[in-house]
Design a protein around this nucleic acid. Structure first.
Length: 753
DNA sequence: AAATGTGGAATTTTT
DNA sequence: TTCCACATTT
């Protein structure tokens, strides 16, 4: 073992890295060196001969995390890490299913549906079966299917209590049949199919169980039930699992993440000889003391926790700064002002983040930043492989690889326009349905006559030609050729605003280029000998690699790695993003904006089970992004859905000890802090309000007024909308929280305060 | 087939 | 308000 490997590890990190045989759960707090421990652990296992490159499997959630792990690991070990199974759950499952497609009952070149493809498929399904999409919204079916699959349930196994559920299960079964017919799988299917492959095929399961002596899992709190069960299957009797996670940063329950997996880990992965070891990484290398104290105090309000407290050997640092703005516009103005000051201190703009709970909130901030001439970058939005022109090109490529893909055919059969309109498609679909074939087969069969038939035949012939031409070309050239032969390039070049699209198509060729480069890079990795499954495991790096057909591999890559939302710009820019997307990142200065009841915590979360705790964890994530300076802001009034709404300050302010916080605006009163009257804002240089406050009509009620309700008790009016008999007020009750009440029915009494 | 209009909904997101 | 999906029009 090379001694430098273990240098500079703190005692807990060192313990985790060098744990003897047995499974371990590492509770790694924010900024505690989680990735470092994970990668050093692998390097340590390799260096001490406890594991070989082939016997390690490391799994993450995002491609980004997988790449980072690979990069950092390469720096820690002299061994070649290519051929090592490091990737996302979906990437690894894809790899496994490609290698064993026959046993998994999949076509060799099966396609992967992204969310949009899946939705399109469901809509086609509805149309084909004459199903009612008002009563069964496609999106709802998609999420029904996803949850069923995440619970490991095929249609026959789903229990349907009522008629509605029964119908959904029927639709689920039809959906499965359609996917099978078209040779495609959705994201959840990758997981479930891989799970079933391992569960139902002893030789393959035995092979992988013998192969992997060490399984390492990143962001373990984000695993869903199926991923957990997949891990359990993959971990043979002698394997050890090294799971790293932070229950306090579990913020993806809404998409199936099950932090309870951390609690079950001890039971499921511990043996009598080797009980599960629990290690806490609590030393934080990121933030100054006051920031950590605030985060610790906040998260202590959660009941369901494994328990952990961050500390730092650095100083206390600056206090947390808080600001109450009269309106969202004032909040934005304050942020802009503060940023100018911070930038003057020499902090690079890229080191300043503006965080918010929901994307809609970026607008006001952007507007203010734009007005001030401050460069910024907004995260989220359209990803590269999701762009229409890119998806069109991919659809052609998909047809070249697998013409049975009806979704791909429908997408481009008349794009660019070639005289195959809705009527022709109707005929084609009827023909396919009548014969029980794919659209492609129907088009080939000449079932559609006349002009439409001729146009279809021409389309078929041109795709056939693309396939023949592409067969003799290296992947990037093949991609380039298909884009040109399909007429996409010419089509977009002729469009008046098509420059960006042409550029993206060229970028797609580049993407194929670098994909091939990485695959070649991986090709010299040691490969298992033999060609018979289950030992035939094509090598390949990256999430989508590992397939003998480069085109299919590239298409899988495109589906599994949607790409960056925005190419990074040249000049440094402020970072605007939701708190969710900030997870894992850190900044010198962080602004957490929109800290209002109803927004953060979000009103929808109040009805969700454990919703408030999840919101609090989200807030915890937000706070722990800051290294040196943290601003918390809220606005008393805010334009939301086209209406001005009033909100009281988030409860999260109350959960951070006062002595840590320095208010830059007049301190709030505990309740009734809604100052519509701006005279109280004397010391503040806030601009004059641009929107008048629209309090309900009548002299009796105004925002800020204290009221009593027969059932809910005493509260304060914090918002209002409508007038006359429609007038509703939003009241924050001391006991029962924020509620909307119709003035006509709720008999409110004024209370003098 | 593009252009225009209408209604409804409007956390959070990766694969 | 603003965005989207969908329907209708030209």
């Amino acid at each position: 073992m090379a001694p430098p490997l273990l240098d500079h590890l703190n005692p807990q990190q060192l313990e985790a890295v060098t744990l003897p045989h047995g499974s371990a759960l590492v509770l790694a707090g924010a900024g505690s060196g989680k990735t470092r421990v994970l990668t050093t652990r692998i390097a340590w296992l390799l260096a001490t001969g406890q594991a070989s490159v082939l016997s390690v499997l490391a799994v993450t959630f995002t491609n980004k995390a997988a790449r980072e792990m690979l990069t950092r690991l390469s720096a820690l070990t002299p061994l070649s890490v290519r051929g090592m199974w490091i990737g996302t759950f979906h990437g690894l499952c894809n790899r496994m299913l490609r290698a064993h497609h026959r046993d998994a009952d999949l076509p060799p070149l099966f396609g992967i549906l992204d969310t949009a493809d899946q939705l399109a498929l469901i809509k086609r399904l509805y149309k084909a079966h004459g199903l009612d999409d008002d009563r069964f919204p496609p999106r709802q079916l998609a999420s029904f299917i996803a949850s069923a699959k995440e619970a490991g349930l095929r249609p026959s196994a789903v229990e349907a209590g009522d008629e509605f559920a029964r119908r959904q299960v029927e639709h689920y079964a039809l959906y499965e049949a359609m996917c099978r017919r078209e040779g495609v799988v959705d994201f959840a299917e990758l997981l479930l199919r891989s799970y079933e492959l391992l569960a139902g095929n002893e030789p393959i399961r035995g092979h992988y169980q013998r192969r992997y002596s060490h399984l390492l899992v990143d962001e373990f709190q984000d695993t869903n039930l199926l991923q957990y069960r997949w891990l359990r299957l993959l971990a043979g009797p002698k394997a050890t699992v090294f799971a790293v996670g932070d229950d306090d940063q579990s913020i993806y329950a809404f998409r199936g993440a099950n932090a309870a997996n951390m609690q079950h880990f001890e039971r499921d992965f511990g043996g009598a000889e080797h009980p599960v070891r629990l290690i806490k990484l609590e030393q934080n290398y990121r933030s100054h003391g006051h920031i950590l104290d605030a985060a610790n105090a906040l998260i202590r309000h959660n009941r369901s926790r494994l328990g952990k407290e961050l500390w730092t050997s650095e100083g206390a640092g600056e206090p947390v700064r808080a600001f109450a703005a009269p309106s969202d516009l004032d909040e934005a103005a304050f942020v802009v002002d503060a940023i100018k000051g911070i930038a003057d201190e020499g902090v690079p703009l890229s080191e300043i983040a503006l965080l918010y709970r929901s994307n809609a909130q970026s607008r006001v901030l952007e507007h203010a930043l734009f007005g001030a001439g401050l460069p910024y970058r907004v995260y989220g939005g359209m990803r590269f492989f999701e762009r229409a022109e890119v998806k069109n090109a991919l659809a052609y490529l998909r047809l070249v690889a697998e013409p049975g893909d009806d979704g791909a055919l429908l997408r481009v059969v008349n794009f660019p326009p070639r005289g195959i309109g809705a009527r022709s498609l109707e005929q084609l679909q009827d023909a396919a349905r009548g014969r029980g074939t794919t659209l492609w087969q129907a088009a080939c069969s000449g079932a559609v006559g006349g002009k439409a038939g001729a146009n279809l035949a021409a389309f078929v012939a041109s795709v056939e030609r693309m396939r023949a031409d592409a067969a003799s070309l290296p992947l990037p050239e093949a991609v380039e050729h298909v884009i040109a032969a399909a007429g996409l390039k010419a089509h977009y070049a002729a469009e008046k605003d098509g420059d960006d699209r042409v550029e993206n198509l060229e970028e797609l060729v580049n993407a194929a280029q670098s994909f091939v480069r990485e695959a070649e890079y991986a090709a010299d990795a040691p490969m298992l000998p033999g060609s018979a499954a289950p030992d035939a495991e094509p090598a390949g790096g990256g999430a989508g690699g590992g397939v003998s057909d480069p085109l299919a591999a590239f298409l899988a890559h495109a589906a599994l790695e949607a790409g960056e939302t925005q190419a990074a710009e040249g000049r440094p820019a402020l970072q605007l993003m939701t708190v969710h997307s900030a997870k894992g990142l850190e900044f010198h200065t962080v602004f957490v904006t929109g800290l209002e009841e109803g927004l953060f915590p979000h009103e929808n979360s109040l009805n969700e089970r454990d919703g408030t705790e999840e919101e609090r964890r989200l807030m915890y994530v937000a706070l722990t992004r800051a290294r040196r300076r943290l601003y918390l802001t809220h606005a008393q009034s805010r334009m939301l859905h086209g209406q001005t709404r009033w909100h009281i300050a988030s409860r999260f302010f109350d959960e951070i000890p006062r002595e840590l916080v320095s208010w830059l605006s007049p301190p709030r009163r505990r309740y009734g802090a809604i100052d519509v009257d701006r005279s109280e804002w004397g010391g503040l240089e806030s601009p004059a309000p641009e929107r008048p406050a629209s309090t309900p009509r009548g002299p009796e009620w105004r925002v800020g007024q204290s009221v009593r309700h027969a059932k809910f008790g005493v509260g304060v009016i914090v918002g209002a909308e409508g007038r006359g008999s429609d007038a509703r007020v939003q009241v924050n009750f001391r006991e029962s929280g924020v509620k909307w009440l119709a003035l006509e029915y709720a008999r409110l009494e004024p209370v003098s305060s």
